[in-house]
Design a protein around this nucleic acid. Structure first.
Lengths: 155, 155
DNA sequence: CACAAATAATTGACATTTTCAACGGTTCAT
DNA sequence: ATGAACCGTTGAAAATGTCAATTATTTGTG
């Protein structure tokens, strides 16, 4: 009974119109993949990837996050943060300071070199973001960010 | 000169307000991570993950995609598609049909069992999506999908 | 105060995923 | 007909993700 007898192949006729084209989870995954690739490409010029860029950003922001807070925020296992921080610290871009209020914890702080690098990297990142959304009004750009924040931080 | 002398730790004071909170690339990554986790959790009930669900979806859609088209669409390496298809084919949910117009290519078609499973899985997936965006108007839901499509398919 | 339980960072083991190069079979353009 | 390009497949190497165990420190409770 099911109308499965397609006689001609659809060929490369866009899969976009399939069920997945309306699937938010899929769209999010694909948008993320492309965006991440674009970001990594430009960040490579600064010796960074999206991950290390994010760590550097938070350290440079004077938010003084502990590694654990960072792990939670970036959705990483604490052990992954160790490696990330090791890398940035070896390059003297950030440093670990043991939290005076809790000597178990390390607070991350950017060095001056780290801040400089971040400032430059941030420009690249911003340029990528604007490039990706070049066809969109600033209002829609902001609306997208707002809606993504809802998904990213479901309180 | 830089105002780096924070005397008190900011503690767990939300990192959300840091630079990254406005970074689309980061928001996309985090939203994707959470969404993917939620999707995988419910899809597990059907023995699927987001990846295999997507493959099944396209096969069940009578789009008759080749493995290569699938790889491009899902942003996967062709070799990953092999494993994915192997798994679904072993479970008799889809089958490979050599494309009559190009005998190098395999076209993927869902079996009846595959269509059944997909129908059920799709409901779960849809429920997750609605749950994640429960706090949002249907108009905003659609707007989000529209904007993500722009990022996911930059023509 | 003392002691048990909980927590932060780290390490190392293991699984999963990604990325690449190579190969056989097939098609395509000359 | 022949060489170049292409599809699926395999297998290896690198990167990521997941988890349990360890040490040092803190916190809660009697």
């Amino acid at each position: 009974m099911s109308p499965r007898e397609k006689t001609r192949p659809t060929g490369q006729e866009s899969l976009r119109d399939s069920v997945l084209g309306g699937d938010l989870i899929f769209l999010l995954a694909r948008a993320n993949a492309l965006t991440l690739a674009a970001a990594n490409a430009v960040l490579a010029q600064h010796g960074l990837k999206a991950r290390s860029y994010s760590v550097l950003a938070l350290a440079a922001d004077d938010a003084r996050p502990t590694q654990r807070e960072l792990a939670e925020f970036l959705r990483l296992d604490p052990s992954q943060v160790v490696a990330l921080v090791d890398g940035l610290e070896k390059r003297q871009l950030i440093e670990r300071q043991t939290d005076p209020t809790d000597r178990r914890a390390n607070v991350l702080v950017a060095t001056d070199a780290g801040r400089d690098l971040f400032a430059r990297a941030q420009e690249s990142a911003r340029a990528v973001e604007l490039g990706l959304l070049a066809t969109v009004t600033p209002e829609d750009h902001e609306r997208l960010a707002e809606l993504l924040r809802l998904l990213a931080f479901p309180d």
